[in-house]
């Protein structure tokens, strides 16, 4: 694993006054978010709050109507070409019957820097092995992905971004349908990646896990309702604004 030398001044993620509309509906309105290297940021909001839209804008899947999105001080397209960004889909978006093995999926993280036929050489096979070992799945490398448990499935995709050596990880609801032990393992993995200087943006409505995992949080409801230190963001008043009158999940300790 190479050491990461992030330019100190340039944020990993710099969203300014982003506005996205679907027809007449404002999906995102005047959203500004920055994230520095080596930070984990929780993106919190209800379904329909614009979390997925924001992810799409970060991945260059939709062009912003207003405002700008920069990753690593450049365009999203350049950042993608350089393999700096990794995305972990929600469980429902993945076809778990697809005939690919755990090692196949992890190897897909490397395709951006392989030759036209994407044939793996010795170094890449080793990178796949290292990534699988790190997430504790090296014994399951030949398993078809549908034969894994919920937590193992998530770790396959974390291993893919490790193999890719991505510096910004976008995780869409990584804790949905995952038991507590697996959530704990994943939290440890993500913190390890952060300590290497990588940044993680994780969308979630699992409020209880936020203070432990995240260095900062953004509360989204089409606009940014609050951002900063998790304890300052996750207040009763803010959550009432984001989730309606009653929070959808129990408040973590420290929310007041």
């Amino acid at each position: 694993m190479t050491a990461l030398h992030a330019d100190a001044g340039v944020p990993v993620l710099d969203v300014r006054n982003l506005g996205v509309r679907y027809g007449e509906v404002h999906a995102l309105d005047d959203v500004s978010i920055t994230l520095a290297a080596g930070r984990i940021c929780g993106l919190i909001g209800v379904n329909g709050s614009g979390k997925s839209t924001l992810f799409k804008a970060l991945m260059g899947l939709l062009a912003p109507r207003e405002g700008s999105v920069e990753l690593f001080g450049t365009t999203t397209a350049r950042a993608r070409k350089q393999g700096l960004v990794a995305y972990m889909p929600q469980a429902e978006e993945v076809d778990w019957t697809f005939p690919v093995s755990v090692a196949d999926v992890v190897a897909m993280g490397l395709y951006g820097r392989l030759g036209a036929s994407r044939r793996l050489r010795t170094a890449e096979h080793a990178a796949v092995g290292d990534a699988l070992e790190r997430v504790g799945l090296d014994g399951l490398r030949k398993r078809q992905i549908g034969q894994l448990s919920g937590g193992q499935r998530k770790r396959v995709f974390i291993a893919r971004s490790i193999a890719q050596d991505a510096r910004l990880l976008l995780l869409d609801e990584p804790f949905a349908g995952v038991d507590q032990a697996s959530e704990h393992t994943m939290t440890g993995l993500l913190k390890g990646l952060r300590d290497e200087g990588r940044s993680v943006l994780v969308s979630t409505h699992d409020l209880a896990g936020v203070p432990d995992l995240c260095d900062e949080a953004v509360l989204l409801h089409r606009r940014v309702l609050a951002s900063g230190d998790p304890s300052a963001v996750l207040t009763h008043g803010n959550l009432a604004l984001a989730f309606g009158a009653a929070p959808a999940a129990p408040l973590p300790d420290g929310g007041s």
Partner: peptide
């Protein structure tokens, strides 16, 4: 057969293919 890995990636996870710059 030459492009089989890219085509499989496209079928399996189009978003990932896009995100890594394909």
């Amino acid at each position: 057969l030459f492009k089989r890995r890219d085509l499989t990636l496209l079928a399996f996870d189009r978003t990932h293919a896009h995100v890594i710059g394909l």
